[in-house]
Simulated scan of single mutants.
Amino acid sequence: MFLAWNEIKKNKLRFSLIIGVLMLVSYLVFFLSGLATGLASLNRESVDKWDATAIILSEESDKSLPQSSITTDEVDHIDGKETAILAQLNAIATNGDTKQNISLFGIDKEERIMPKVTEGKEFSKENEVIASDALKEEGFAIGDKLELSSSDEKLTIVGFTNSARFNGAPVLYSELSTFQHVKFGEAAEANGDKINGIVVYGENVSSISTSNEDLEVIEIETFIENLPGYTEQALTLNFMIYFLFGISSVIVAIFLYVLTVQKISMFGVMKAQGISNGYLSRSVIAQTFLLAFIGVTVGFVLTLTTGTFLPSAVPVAFDIPTMIFYGVVLTVVAILGAVFSVLTIVRIDPLKAIGG
C-alpha cells in the first residue's frame, strides 16, 4: 500500500486521468440506477400502497387489470383474510388549464385499499375524488372541477394522497358508484356490479384461493412485472448498467497495462533486488483499489449532488443500498481489470528488463 500510494502522489496527473474515467463511469451507473428506480416507482407506487398479497383477475385478462372484467359477487367465492374491490380505467383529465393522463380507481372507502389523505378530506359523495399529489405539481388543486375525456361527468378534487401512480399515471380515487357513472354513463345502474379486480390480503399467496375457475389469483409482484413496459424498461436499464461494469473493467485494464509496460525496467530492477512477485502484485492491486475507491466515491457524491438540483419532472429516485452495492461491484471489476498487469509483472525477467 505504501508503494502504491507513493506512486500515485508522484504521478498525480497520470492517475488523475484514471480516477476521472472511473468517476464518470460510476456517475453514469449511479444515475442509471436512480433512473431505473424512479421509473419503476412511477409504475408501481399505487400498487405498493395497497400493501396486498395478491390480486384476482379474470383468467382471460392475461394478468392485465384494464383487460379484466368481473363482478362484485365474486368476493363471496374468494378464500382470503381480507378483500377489497377495485375498478380501473385510463383517461385524460383537465381542470380547464392543464391536461394530464390519469388512472381512475373505483373503490369502497370502508375497505383497506382506501388511501390515507395527506391534504384535504376523504370523498363522501358521488363525483368527489382523492388525487395523487403528483397532480399538484402539474397545477391541480383542491376544489378543481375535472373533465374526463371518456365521460360527461365532472369530478371534484377534495383531497390529495402521496405515492399514488399507476403505470406512470397519477391516480384518482373515487367511490365505485362514481366510477360506474364515469365509465358507463346512463348505463351505470345496469353495470353497477362490474369491476376489474379484487385485491386480496393474506399471509401468503398459497393461502388465497377462489372457487371460480374463470378467475386467476396473481401474486402482487407478478402483477407488477406484467404491467405494460415495466419489465422491458427495467431490463433495458439494468443491461446498460451491467454493460458499464464491463467497460469499467476494460478501461482500468488498459490504463494499468500501459503503465505497467512503461515500468518494466523498474520492476526488473526491483525483482533483481529480491522484491517478490507477490509484493509487486499486491502493490498493483492496492493501487487499483485506491484509484477505484476514490473514483467511485467522487461519482457517488456527484450523483447525489446532481439529484438535489433535478426538477421533479425527472423520474429519478436514488436507492442508497443499491448504489452502495453497485459501487462495490465497480471497485471489484476494476481490481479484476488489474489482473492483466499482475500477470505481466509475474512474467518479467529481471535480466532482460534491465538489458542484461
Results as ranks from 00 to 15, higher is better:
residue 99 K to R: 10
residue 153 E to A: 12
residue 151 S to F: 15
residue 112 R to T: 04
residue 161 T to W: 12
residue 121 K to G: 15
residue 137 E to Y: 15
residue 134 A to N: 13
residue 204 N to S: 07
residue 102 I to E: 08
residue 171 V to M: 09
residue 170 P to K: 12
residue 198 I to K: 05
residue 132 S to N: 14
residue 98 T to E: 04
residue 114 M to V: 10
residue 138 E to T: 01
residue 154 K to S: 08
residue 137 E to R: 11
residue 103 S to A: 12
residue 156 T to R: 10
residue 115 P to C: 10
residue 124 S to Q: 00
residue 187 A to H: 08
residue 211 S to T: 06
residue 128 E to R: 00
residue 156 T to Q: 08
residue 189 E to M: 02
residue 160 F to D: 07
residue 209 S to N: 09
residue 165 R to T: 08
residue 157 I to E: 09
residue 128 E to Q: 02
residue 193 D to L: 04
residue 111 E to I: 12
residue 110 E to P: 04
residue 103 S to W: 06
residue 116 K to C: 03
residue 164 A to I: 13
residue 187 A to Y: 08
residue 117 V to P: 03
residue 117 V to F: 10
residue 199 V to Q: 03
residue 117 V to L: 14
residue 198 I to W: 13
residue 168 G to C: 09
residue 193 D to H: 02
residue 152 D to P: 08
residue 182 V to D: 00
residue 145 K to L: 12
residue 118 T to Y: 12
residue 153 E to V: 09
residue 113 I to K: 08
residue 136 K to M: 09
residue 130 I to S: 06
residue 122 E to Q: 15
residue 172 L to P: 03
residue 190 A to Y: 10
residue 121 K to V: 10
residue 105 F to N: 12
residue 164 A to Q: 13
residue 150 S to K: 05
residue 209 S to A: 06
residue 130 I to Y: 08
residue 206 S to D: 15
residue 203 E to L: 01
residue 207 S to M: 06
residue 164 A to T: 11
residue 164 A to N: 11
residue 194 K to D: 04
residue 188 A to I: 00
residue 127 N to F: 08
residue 136 K to G: 09
residue 196 N to Q: 13
residue 164 A to K: 12
residue 133 D to F: 15
residue 119 E to Y: 12
residue 110 E to C: 06
residue 124 S to V: 07
residue 101 N to K: 04
residue 108 D to N: 09
residue 168 G to D: 15
residue 179 F to A: 07
residue 179 F to C: 00
residue 104 L to G: 01
residue 101 N to E: 03
residue 206 S to Q: 12
residue 178 T to G: 00
residue 121 K to D: 15
residue 103 S to E: 14
residue 123 F to M: 11
residue 163 S to K: 06
residue 142 I to L: 01
residue 162 N to V: 15
residue 108 D to A: 06
residue 197 G to K: 04
residue 116 K to P: 03
residue 168 G to T: 04
residue 165 R to H: 04
residue 145 K to W: 12
residue 139 G to F: 01
residue 159 G to S: 14
residue 197 G to I: 09
residue 142 I to Y: 09
residue 168 G to H: 07
residue 109 K to Y: 14
residue 123 F to R: 01
residue 167 N to E: 11
residue 156 T to C: 04
residue 148 L to E: 04
residue 150 S to G: 05
residue 175 E to H: 05
residue 184 F to M: 00
residue 182 V to L: 07
residue 117 V to Y: 11
residue 200 V to P: 03
residue 116 K to W: 10
residue 188 A to S: 01
residue 151 S to H: 07
